[in-house]
Design a binder for these strands. Structure first.
Length: 882
RNA sequence: GGGAGUUUAGCUCAGCUGGUUCAGAGCAUCUGCCUUACAAGCAGAGGGUCACUGGUUCGAACCCAGUAACUCCCACCA
């Protein structure tokens, strides 16, 4: 049977994924084993897989598969997030295409459309994860808006309200005019924008308009938002500002609408910024709002929820705020109220979900007090009970937790958990799960409800922030709210590792810790592995809009899931951004191919049972090598240096197993191999497959079944992860030196342009006879030698090379030896060594060094000196011979 | 404006407690090879003033101070 020269992943991947599912290998139930649990950061239900997911989920799958093989009860809980703003926006857009406006629908109708849509397109991303090989327990798939999880959200809301941590209040919120909802501070992305600073003249009431001194006639105010002048409530100057002292108590007139406003003083105003005059617009700026409260100014809100101007603006009613800004500029110009326009850079907030410019807006919202919850959540991380990997994020975390703001949790949307607050027409309200309970609460309260009936109650039309459901995720996926003592939650909680992006450290990670502490008394996980952001070669974040992101599924088709996984791991150390390049994935594919071909070689051998066992040295060496590397790999895993662990495995397989071990034992063309070597090699390969399985699940499973007859259910995915065994350090050291000798000989071949086919001879210094006698065969084979001798002197016609402090010779009787070149090479070497020796001598002659340095260090220096001297001596002898 | 981080080979990054695993790895590059597992390969080789300037030390990529560039987070200067 001939096997393809290249590995073709496609059928292999589908076949094994289906088989794993069929055998139920991913599913987990509580038992006596130690649990190892990961909850997936739930992707948006409407999302499609992007490179960030690939990285994130590859890491999770590596961790979970390794834990499974190490005998733990591995449970990876998948699911999706309802992502209220993003999903609602998509549904609204879809309805719009059908000619349906959200405003024309009832809440129920809209939600029914939304659920239909979710049923149809939701969860595509989970199907995509399967292509990557994700070994989630799909029976446990959850959705943040399914009934039971929603009930948990409502329960928590009511509980926190009872505790007095949830409150309702008028606040300046970040209003997203595109999403038509308030969003939290964390969802606002600030960007520096090139804008214009408009210098607008406000006439002063009572000033002599004929006055020759223009400056007394009007004030000039610098603003980036001229469209809000109609909402001005005052003009504010610094009371210490000499320029404006005379204006105290006077009034100014808003241009265009000619409304009078007072001129007030407050030292909030910086004198040297702009003109030193500030227009106070309480409805549209947070500072102005606070200034307005202090000076009891009216709030004039001139904007509709969608960002257009309303009738209070008096002019430009119905125009969008940005259109209005332009028009006002022109209008001010025409009415001679504009002094000048300057270019200006300012920080503007954008909605994370819709990218609309945020409008500060006063509105009634629900808030969650954060101070009480933040304190313990900070402790978990600072004490190391929850470890952030890498720990540089500790600082950022601390800073945020110490300056945390109350969390605006209400959203003016329909897609989400509706806030369990019930209002009477007079504005009194109760927080309760049902209308009946709310009615009971209100009846029992001191409020007078006699004039109302239960039917007069209206539920708050807002929903809670999506994060208000996802912060419960590690508990709610195990039904820990509805049934706090159930078997699952007690077994799986707290989970082990969380793998997520640093971007949502506060949105999500910090809040999960808060919820975990509040409702389980324990943080929800022990380690948080923070991946970087996947960027393109130029360092730009990969995004759909830039079109710089490859489609992960295309990559999987082209390079195989294993190749893509390896590629992602190769370019990603924890917490560092990933500069993605297809070259990494290619490297991953090539690695798959390498493993495939190692198998082809093993598979091609015929075993001769009558042959005595050979290659014992090679076998012993690789055994030790494997164990030594396995130890290192495990150490790296323990430190979550997964990329490093991957690279070590890569080198072990490619360099040590393929390039070295297999070449050592490979029989000649069409010759059989002895049973000992063959069986050992199969055992090694088997271990290698297991070692690689967490990184490359598909190819390893495939080959695992090809290398031996396997019983039903006997699969690599559930095989026991190799354990480090005996390491013979001497074998490792001696072999390393022998390999060095081989490499030197090959190098000389290259330099002297001697064909690898031409056999050479080698003279090994006789003092090394003990060390090298068992290596003669191996060296001869790998360096293609005809004869190896032990000797004291340099053969007359020969080339020499050094390994360590020993000089080896390759006799070259038939070859032309360029004596001059050889001399020159040796001289150069001697010169270098002498320089080196000098620097060592300086050190050793330095009394301070000898008296201060550790004895080991001094010993090392002495050895360096001795080695260098011995090398020089040998080289000088060689010179004489020439 | 405040804070954190980064800067080591052409690229991506290791380098742990200051000293032989100290200047490393992978990729890329160059040279020679279609050698009966693999050209998605094999065998070799060449790449670095460890951002810069000082300091501490017998000894600094590593510790300290300053400078520069970049990145991220936080923040209400119109």
């Amino acid at each position: 049977m001939s096997i393809s020269k290249t590995y073709s992943p496609r059928e292999v991947e589908d076949k094994w994924y289906a088989y794993w599912l069929e055998q139920d290998f991913f599913s987990s139930k509580p038992d006596s084993r130690e649990p190892y649990t990961i909850v997936i950061p739930p992707p948006n239900v409407t999302g499609v897989l992007h490179m960030g997911h690939m990285l994130n989920n590859t890491i999770q799958d590596v961790l979970i598969r390794r834990a499974r093989m190490m005998g733990k009860n591995a449970c990876w809980v998948p699911g999706t997030d309802h992502a209220s703003i993003a999903t609602e926006a998509k549904v609204v857009a879809l309805l719009k295409e059908k000619g349906i406006s959200k405003n024309d629908l009832t809440r129920e109708e809209f939600l029914s459309y939304a659920f239909d849509w979710k049923e149809k397109y939701g969860g595509i991303i989970l199907e995509q994860l399967k292509k990557l090989g994700a070994s989630c327990d799909w029976n446990r798939t959850r959705f943040t808006m399914e009934d039971s999880m929603s009930r948990a959200v409502i329960k928590v809301f009511i509980d926190l309200h009872k505790k007095g941590w949830i409150y309702r209040g008028v606040r300046m919120v970040n209003w997203d005019p595109a999403g038509m909802t308030a969003i939290s501070d964390e969802e606002v992305i600030r960007k520096e924008i090139n804008s214009k600073l408009y210098y607008i003249k406000y006439r002063i009431v009572g000033a002599d308009s004929q006055s020759e001194i223009l400056n007394q006639d009007y004030l000039v105010i610098a603003t980036t938002r001229p469209e809000t002048i109609m909402a001005d409530a005052a003009i504010c100057v610094n009371p210490n500002d000499e320029r404006y002292k005379h204006l105290k108590g006077k009034k100014a007139i808003i241009p265009l609408i000619n409304r009078e406003i007072p001129i007030i003083g407050d030292d909030y105003v910086t004198m040297d910024f702009g003109t030193g005059c500030l227009k106070v617009t309480p409805a549209h700026d947070l500072n102005d709002y606070e200034l307005g409260i202090k000076h009891k100014l009216p709030v004039i809100d001139i904007l509709n929820d969608n960002g257009t101007l309303n009738e209070k603006a008096e002019i430009l009613i119905g125009k969008d705020r940005f259109a209005a800004r332009k028009e006002i500029g022109v209008m001010l110009e025409n009415s001679n109220s504009l002094q000048k326009i300057e270019d200006y850079k300012s920080q503007v907030g954008f909605s994370e979900r819709t990218d609309a410019v945020i409008e500060p807006k006063l509105s009634m919202q629900w808030f969650l007090k954060m101070d009480k919850m933040a304190a313990p959540a900070l402790d978990y991380v600072m004490s190391g009970e929850v470890k952030l990997i890498p720990d540089k994020f500790k600082n950022t975390y601390k800073h945020w937790m110490e300056n945390v703001h109350d969390w605006c949790i209400s959203r003016q949307l329909w897609w989400g958990q509706q806030i369990p607050a019930w209002y009477l027409p007079d504005g009194t309200y109760a927080v309760a799960e049902t209308r009946d309970e709310a009615w009971q609460i209100l009846k029992n309260s001191e409020n007078n409800t006699t004039s109302y009936s239960k039917e007069d109650l209206n539920q708050d039309s807002d929903v809670v922030d999506t994060w208000f459901s996802s912060w419960l995720w590690p508990i709610s996926v195990f039904d820990g709210f509805e049934d706090p003592e159930n078997e699952d939650i007690n077994y799986y909680y707290p989970t082990n590792d969380l793998v997520t992006a640093p971007e949502i450290l506060f949105f999500w990670v910090a809040r999960m810790i808060m919820a975990g502490h509040e409702y389980r008394g324990k943080a929800p996980f022990k380690n948080v592995y923070l991946t970087g952001i996947v960027r393109d070669k130029q360092g730009r974040k990969m995004s759909k809009s830039l079109g710089n992101s490859p489609d992960p599924l295309d990559l999987i088709t082209e390079f195989g899931a294993d190749g893509v996984r390896v590629g992602m791991l190769l370019c990603s150390s924890a917490g560092n951004d990933v500069l993605y390049d297809n070259a990494f994935v290619e490297q991953g594919r090539n690695f798959s191919n390498k493993i495939w071909n190692a198998f082809r070689l093993l598979n091609s051998w015929t075993v001769d049972k009558n042959l005595s066992s050979q290659n014992e040295l090679a076998v012993n060496w690789f055994e030790s090598k494997f164990n030594a590397e396995l130890e290192l790999i495990n150490q790296n895993f323990d430190q979550y240096r997964i990329s490093e662990a991957m690279m070590l495995a890569y080198k072990l397989v490619w360099d040590d197993f393929c390039s070295t071990y297999l070449e050592m034992i490979k029989p000649g063309f069409e010759e059989p191999i002895d049973a000992y070597s063959y069986n050992k090699s199969i055992i090694f390969f088997d271990k290698i497959l297991k070692l690689l399985h967490p990184f490359m699940p598909f190819i390893t499973e495939e080959l695992w079944h090809q290398t031996a007859e396997r019983k039903e259910k006997e699969c690599c995915i559930v095989a026991e992860y190799p354990k480090p065994e005996v390491i013979n350090r001497q074998t490792l050291d001696y072999t390393t030196l022998a390999l060095k000798v081989i490499s030197e000989i090959r190098n000389i071949r290259n330099q002297k342009q001697i064909s690898p086919k031409e056999k050479l001879a080698l003279v090994i210094p006789s003092i090394l006879q003990n060390q090298y006698s068992s290596y003669v065969e191996m060296i001869s084979k790998l360096a293609n030698l005809s004869e190896v001798k032990f000797g004291k002197n340099k053969p007359e016609k020969s080339i020499s090379f050094m390994v360590g402090t020993d000089e080896f010779y390759i006799p070259m009787e038939n070859m032309q030896i360029d004596t001059e070149a050889e001399k020159e090479r040796i001289l150069k070497e001697i010169e270098y060594l002498k320089g080196f020796l000098k620097s060592v001598d300086v050190k050793l002659n330095n009394e301070k060094f000898v008296s201060n340095a550790k004895t080991e260090v001094i010993e090392i220096e002495r050895k360096k000196k001795a080695d260098a001297e011995s090398k020089i001596k040998q080289l000088e002898q060689a010179m004489e011979m020439l």
